[in-house]
Design a protein around this nucleic acid. Sequence first.
DNA 1: ACCTGAACACCGTTCAAGT
DNA 2: ACCTGAACACCGTTCAAGT
Lengths: 187, 187
Amino acid sequence: MACAALRILDNLGLPDLTMRRLAAELDVQPSALYHHFPNKQTMLAELADRIVATHGLSPEDVPEDWRDALRAESAALRDGLLAYRDGAEVVSSTLALGLGADAPLHRLAGVIGRGGFDDSTAARASSVLVHFVLGHVSHEQQRMQYDSLGALSPELKSRGLDDDQAASFAFGVDLLVGGLERSRSRT
Amino acid sequence: MACAALRILDNLGLPDLTMRRLAAELDVQPSALYHHFPNKQTMLAELADRIVATHGLSPEDVPEDWRDALRAESAALRDGLLAYRDGAEVVSSTLALGLGADAPLHRLAGVIGRGGFDDSTAARASSVLVHFVLGHVSHEQQRMQYDSLGALSPELKSRGLDDDQAASFAFGVDLLVGGLERSRSRT
DNA sequence: ACCTGAACACCGTTCAAGT
DNA sequence: ACCTGAACACCGTTCAAGT
């Protein structure tokens, strides 16, 4: 059920993920969907939860240094969002509406807490980080879609573009890690 | 024309800002709008540009210290977004689609550049900052809307909530300012 | 140049009725 | 419990025709 929705999302994108198309994919009438979700937003929230659950970094892969752990978790979250077309937008809107997809928030806050910051700081900093990740990846995915719509010589321009995106993503994460580190040394 | 759109946005919110309602507000047929904008997104982009243009900090009010200037510009941007219902979401989607609303990006990059950072760093850091601001204010506005829909004793919970929002906003900005400062001293 | 009228191809959601 | 069929109240956009 949610699998069909993810398939539509990945193949056609968020604007084409309609209740009617999902119903058609399941060979069912649109009204039947409302026995499983109260409304469309709830269905998208379920998708968002699944998308961020994908970014499972196995516990043994989490570095013990909190800064490296934060970088690793951030990169894993980015990978999870990039795994589905328009993944960042789905998660972003769900999170904004307070309907879920808040696992990364708690995950990252936990890592920061392990760095010796108080709960309030950890919560706020993880929120800043998640806002950045969602904004960055949304932009990234928007650009991918634009490029695939075939402007002039897409290969030429996108050669090394993935590296650029990864680098500017890492820059943002490092900026926040640095800010955190500094905030502690200034106490 | 754009004023009517802003009025609808502020009174009814983004979901109710439809081409048909805008046409009705202007006492015109929906099809008439397409002589002014090629499509709805373009119309929203015009709105977004206007919303971020509001955040005009007069040049004499910009502090000379780049860190204070960054804080002041960020706060002014937040105020501009908060000035219209769903302002952050309108700007966010327009920026994501690359249709405009990039004035704050250049403004902030300029301020950072005045702090002695190279152009690439300034551009990346201002992008991080704008992602944070949009994410934060979106969340803020979502919550305002939710509260006004009247949960239990809204005054009780929102007493001092504005201060909280302003404080966590300032925290995020300071985190990034600190990160930038640190990135220079570590060169 | 700017607008009307009418249509096209859709939406999300509800609800009685069936099994 | 789960689904159908039909409807309600909308959308964004196009296009011939008018002025």
